[in-house]
């Protein structure tokens, strides 16, 4: 018993310096987020009516569908485009690799609004892409590339590509090239070696990057708000609108809770199967 009493004291050793940060996060992170989520079952009255309304109203259900659709397409396209880049990046001579990596990092660190603005201008009816396609005679009418989900998908793929390429690059670099020589010696053709050796060995990197991009896309606000339209909203915009314009905190909090739950669940999957993030 006496030994037990001394245990808690020892178990707090070195905890002190964490207190200021803990206070900051408790006051300005944990408490606000938890009280926001509580509002989803407390406003306007106690119960789950906000969640029922979210899933039963076709407009809101449509937003959920849009969000998952865009996140899925963005992830798939980023993987398809990012895989060859990561692959070549992992084996190309170092001086080229440095250049490609520099381009990726510069694009990643360029202000999000600046990049989104660039796509707003490039994709508009009189933008460079439409005028070029019309000059080439490929189309006769300008395409509607912006103020819809096409624009959102292009803009988000642009932003997410580095987040696919970098983890994939790391995981392909870690593969021992002799495993592929062994596959060739055993008579595997290129396609077979790719499908049965390279692809499975790089799958964890692809899955980790893909999951991260999917999760980030689900909660994205800026790009969908600027490149999308009010009639084809995504979840984050809907939350902002419910809270800021419609002052419907109950419904907005319920939508935030759904986003939060899906995000944390997917991160839990990632940590469980691919062991942490970095």
């Amino acid at each position: 018993m006496a030994a037990n009493a001394s245990v808690p004291r020892r178990q707090r050793r070195g905890f002190g310096p964490a207190v200021p940060a803990l206070v900051l996060l408790a006051l300005f992170f944990v408490i606000p987020v938890v009280s926001l989520l509580l509002r989803s079952i407390l406003e306007p009255e106690f119960g789950l009516q906000n969640y029922a309304e979210l899933f039963a109203t076709s407009t809101y259900a449509r937003v959920l569908y849009n969000t998952f659709l865009v996140a899925f397409v963005v992830t798939a396209v980023s993987l398809l485009l990012g895989y060859p880049v990561a692959w070549l990046l992992a084996i190309m001579p170092q001086r080229y690799a440095n250049l490609v990596l520099a381009i990726i990092l510069v694009s990643m660190w360029t202000n999000l609004l600046a990049r989104t603005y660039a796509w707003m201008v490039l994709l508009q009816r009189t933008g460079l892409i439409n005028t070029t396609l019309m000059k080439l005679g490929l189309i006769s009418e300008p395409l509607a590339l912006v103020k819809n989900l096409t624009g959102v998908t292009i803009g988000m793929t642009y932003i997410m590509l580095p987040f696919i390429i970098l983890p994939l690059y790391a995981s392909i670099r870690a593969i021992d090239p002799t495993t592929l020589q062994a596959a060739a010696l055993c008579g595997a053709g290129r396609w077979q070696a790719f499908r049965r050796v390279l692809l499975p060995l790089s799958a964890p990197g692809a899955a980790a990057g893909g999951l991260m991009v999917f999760v980030m896309s689900l909660g994205y606000f800026v790009t969908p708000a600027l490149l999308g339209s009010a009639s084809q909203m995504m979840l984050a915009e809907m939350i902002a609108q419910l809270v800021q314009s419609l002052l419907n905190w109950g419904l907005g909090s319920a939508a935030a809770f759904i986003l939060l739950t899906v995000t944390l669940a997917l991160y839990a999957v990632q940590i469980r199967f691919f062991g942490g993030m970095r």
Partner: peptide
């Protein structure tokens, strides 16, 4: 998701 923190 930043939007959740922003609203909170």
């Amino acid at each position: 998701p930043v939007i959740v923190f922003a609203v909170a």
